[in-house]
Design a protein around this nucleic acid. Structure first.
Length: 270
DNA sequence: CGAACGACCTGCAGGC
DNA sequence: TGCCTGCAGGTCGTTC
């Protein structure tokens, strides 16, 4: 479900409801996520005031003075703000209720998501070694070009590697490569600096446009208020196998690359 | 070090 | 109707 734009849309949706509020109760119905939900979450988060709601890569960081609730939505995770705490449905694994009666509810059918309680989340091994934010000032074509030296991996796998740059998932990797006319299988180390500048710009633009549209809803993404995103109408190649390339009319091809579906135009992307 | 791949888990669509 | 297969927006650990 969520790539960077969907996580950012979620963050922006939950933040105003959480900031300044105090947690009343934490209900863990299913502790078996990608890692076990720590018991301390339910014992230590209640009573804490929420002082920050931030995002790093696809992780959400809900900060208190004591520690931080680190959330990841995995493939199928979703966060909603509810006015109260209605009867939970299947896969509603976690509720964080607030003193004002509202409830932050985490739902995740596939359970690839994460809920941890950490005093220093950015020092966690999974966050510590992450690459730059694509929308930050330390990401550009020169950086990508430098990172790509001597690398033979396909450029699509390269930009989806969180140690290179974070937040670029399968949808937006395909779209950014199409926009910059690069074939997904092209070995990362064979691409020129000029092309990497185009690719970096394409990544930033596609992510910013998707955020502005509230993300991409393929089947089930909804924001914190239950509204879908609208960027799917702007997708040029993702999920469009056999449909004409918007530039040249050739049918869009689909090919499996690093166990992920890739969509591209053979003629426009080299 | 980098590259390729299996693993985790559920739901759904499509073929028979 | 049911059963089977393959696929899905992520990302880790293992192996070579």
């Amino acid at each position: 479900m969520p790539e960077l734009p969907e996580v950012e849309t979620t963050r922006a949706g939950i933040a105003p409801h959480l900031l300044g509020q105090t947690v009343k109760e934490v209900v863990v119905r299913q502790p078996r996520l990608r890692l076990p939900v720590p018991l301390e979450l339910a014992s230590e988060l209640p009573g804490q005031a929420i002082v920050s709601v931030e995002r790093r890569a696809k992780y959400l960081l809900i900060g208190t003075r004591r520690a931080t609730l680190l959330l990841h939505l995995g493939m199928s995770g979703r966060l909603r703000i509810l006015d109260d705490a209605p009867t939970p449905a299947r896969h509603d694994h976690l509720d964080v209720t607030l003193n004002n009666g509202a409830c932050l509810r985490f739902t995740d059918p596939r359970r690839f998501g994460l809920a941890l309680w950490l005093t220093d989340p950015l020092a966690h091994p999974w966050l510590r070694d992450l690459g730059p934010e694509p929308l930050g000032t330390d990401f550009d074509g020169d950086y990508l070009y430098q990172q790509a030296r001597q690398r033979t991996t396909p450029v699509k796998s390269f930009i989806m590697d969180g140690h290179v740059v974070v937040g670029v998932g399968n949808i937006y990797a395909n779209e950014a490569l199409f926009r910059s006319a690069l074939h997904p299988t092209r070995p990362a180390g064979t691409i020129s600096l000029a092309h990497y500048r185009q690719l970096a710009t394409a990544i930033q633009q596609v992510l910013q446009e998707a955020i502005a549209q509230g993300g991409t809803t393929l089947r089930d993404f909804q924001d914190a208020q239950g509204r879908p995103g609208y960027f799917q109408v702007a997708l040029q190649v993702y999920g469009r196998t056999g449909q004409p390339c918007p530039h040249c009319g050739q049918p869009i091809r689909q090919q499996r690359l690093a166990q992920r579906s890739s969509f591209f135009c053979d003629r426009c992307q080299r």
